[in-house]
Design a protein around this nucleic acid. Sequence first.
DNA 1: TTGTAAGCGTTATCAT
DNA 2: ATGATAACGCTTACAA
Lengths: 340, 340
Amino acid sequence: MSQRRITIYDLARAMGISASYVSRALNEHPSINPEVVAAVKKKAKELNFKLNSHAANLRQGSSKTLGVIVPHINQSFFSEIIAGIEEICFEHNHSLIICQTHESFQRECLAVDTLVRQNVDCIILSVAAETTTTEHLESIAQHNIPLIQIDRYLDQLNSCKVLNDNKKAAYDVMQSLFGQGYERIAFLGGPTHLTTFKQRRDGFLQAWEDSAFSNRTPLLFDDVFDLSVVTKVIDQLLQNENRPDAIFTVSDHQSVAVLQKAESLGIRVPQDLGIFGFANETFTAIMNPSLSSVDQKSKELGIRAARVYFDDIRKNNGIPKINEVILETELMTRQSSIRR
Amino acid sequence: MSQRRITIYDLARAMGISASYVSRALNEHPSINPEVVAAVKKKAKELNFKLNSHAANLRQGSSKTLGVIVPHINQSFFSEIIAGIEEICFEHNHSLIICQTHESFQRECLAVDTLVRQNVDCIILSVAAETTTTEHLESIAQHNIPLIQIDRYLDQLNSCKVLNDNKKAAYDVMQSLFGQGYERIAFLGGPTHLTTFKQRRDGFLQAWEDSAFSNRTPLLFDDVFDLSVVTKVIDQLLQNENRPDAIFTVSDHQSVAVLQKAESLGIRVPQDLGIFGFANETFTAIMNPSLSSVDQKSKELGIRAARVYFDDIRKNNGIPKINEVILETELMTRQSSIRR
DNA sequence: TTGTAAGCGTTATCAT
DNA sequence: ATGATAACGCTTACAA
């Protein structure tokens, strides 16, 4: 039952050769006769030998593993990103360790800790909503682990970034809403210490200024991200006499809350209220009415982030040539914002 | 820039003590003066020291890490399971490595390989739909790594299991549908080599036999799980003259497909067609009509699975006392199956 | 209480 | 082409 793990020494003994030779054979070192390679691999399979990664990593100082930290893994936006990263890791024979922060700063620190201890070759991070400081992230660099920020990011942190053009996307959404004849458009934003959300806010404001309604005060609500907060704000907003005729949110879950509140108040969507979200979560397409949303090309975001590591950072000895990758977004205009 | 990683030797030198003493201090060994512990930890923070897990694991033969393998991480059923496992791992100061198979057998083998190489202390697995053989899973035991199957499982494999009472749940769903006056109830099943799906099928058949319609042939479709397959079957089923008046599926994604097809054909749900799914995915509650589904208590499944490892397997030196944990389910009867 | 030294399973260097 | 040996960073007997 409790037999020891099979090591290369066991293999070596079983085959009458040395451990170092076995190691080289398993790694297909060029100096080794292909027949020997085959024989060793066959024996390894026979004895159910599995390489001990810890030993190999310790020796090599590299773990052939990337780490990814996201707020939630059960949002299709992030799980698509992860799928993209996985795809590229797979191509390069690397593993992936996934951590989720649940938007908590403390969990983010913990995740960073875990990944550094695991000696991952690179960390891909989408910042938690709670995070305002960068100390825990700066420490990553001291371990010579490259950091790539993806989607959500902190501007003050010096790292590669893979992003959307959030300002443009938000601007485009506003054009779409104006085009549908909506005039009193409210904006439900996220935490503005994250540049990503600040940019969406900028896009909203820019579009407002460029519009025929620029003399009116824009209906802007910052940091309405948490479900409990967003519910309260929507309550007030929709029960108000001068309620908005459209609501643009920086996430799809905010949009769902808006839709549900509207339904409970008998406000018709999209006739009386237009709704536009962000991230193109899977459920937006199957809801009824279906929810308009910004497709951020999440899987491609993941692919590009991983490629920044493999094709740029790694090839240039840790010093990236590319600093920012900007991906186009696509407006998925659905029932919730089409009334013409 | 490219400084070496800080080790306990660096700490030791900086403090004028030995490395082993540092190690013990960091691990809060009882023999160590609390002041020394504090001082060492302070210095460690100051120098941004992070323990090299690979080295520690290699030495200790344990990684303080669990591994979990699931078909998809972006289904709330599985992500809730993971959240549950995470919670318990966190309590016990363990990390978690998450792998997804995308229902592919090959990917599952790869994930097992990765986790064994990473020397995880335990593997929690929900089998991929494609998997019919157990060889790759039996090899896990040879490495003295305990395996816990969760939700989806292969009966022929000797391992701990954390499950729902699937037969009962399916039986209950049928009672609910009969209670709503549905009579021609079709069953869209999954791959029956996975016992989980076989049990749901059994529950359906049992309920059928116990019903007033037992003389009629049950409308049973096995292995209608893949989206492309399910779409075809639904197409035929709903365009048929004698189409069913209710459809019970073993997953929520099948139910969504049914709902969408029904809508496109102008079949009213729930009046003309009742729909009942399985897993209680997040989106089922926000759809319109909302989808009835079986709540499998997914987070609790995860919690219990992790506890089987920490509270049972680990405490009994790898030999579990508990072999099966069965969790009750709850019927979430929503708009899609209520017509009375 | 503190230090010395061996060893975990690999791989890389240096021989042969 | 093949083998001996040291080293990766840590923990743990054992010694002092």
